[in-house]
Design a protein around this nucleic acid. Structure first.
Length: 156
DNA sequence: GCCAACGTTGGC
DNA sequence: GCCAACGTTGGC
């Protein structure tokens, strides 16, 4: 089982929104980045767990845990001319963009802030894309060691 | 609001 | 294939 981190701006869709969805489940749509697309399409598996990360807020950080509940499949919002993330270059016969469905698992007891994570950028979290300067990836892999380390911070 | 860093586009 | 221009991300 692999681990992931998924970013979202809570102004658009935060973990509170996810909790309020039917079955606390939501398609993670609107991703328009090839690296992130490839991970959803090719690597994510049902049962994988992910951190839910809030970006573009006063205190960016990890706020909860989600589970991947579907394999990658085409993102229908790319086909919809009225959708915000419509992409005319994607069509159902040759989909360009993919998504996975995610389900709320639990809140963290506290937000583990980006600044706290960066404190470990040179040791336990060395190589973790999130703490690298200029990182813009909205979906990234988390190694087992990084996952356990970050979970350990929750009680610290 | 600023701006550095990044990914994408398109001319050549 | 190169790379300048552009739009976006996202921390601060």
């Amino acid at each position: 089982m692999a681990h992931w981190l998924l970013k979202s701006e809570p102004d658009a869709f935060g973990i509170e929104n996810l909790k309020n969805r039917r079955n606390q489940t939501e398609p993670w749509d609107g991703v328009r980045n090839y690296q992130a697309r490839n991970m959803m399409r090719d690597q994510m598996q049902v049962g994988d767990l992910g951190f839910f990360y809030h970006s573009n807020v006063k205190e960016p950080g990890i706020v909860g845990i989600i589970e991947i509940v579907s394999a990658g499949h085409p993102d229908p919002t790319a086909f919809d001319p009225h959708a915000k993330y419509y992409d005319p270059k994607s069509d159902p016969d040759h989909p360009r963009w993919y998504l996975v469905d995610v389900r709320f698992v639990r809140d963290l007891k506290r937000t583990i802030s980006l600044s706290e994570l960066k404190d470990h950028a040179d040791d336990a979290l060395a190589g973790f894309p999130l703490v690298r300067k200029g990182n813009r990836l909205s979906i990234m892999p988390v190694t087992d060691q990084q996952w356990e380390f970050i979970l350990g911070l929750e009680n610290g």
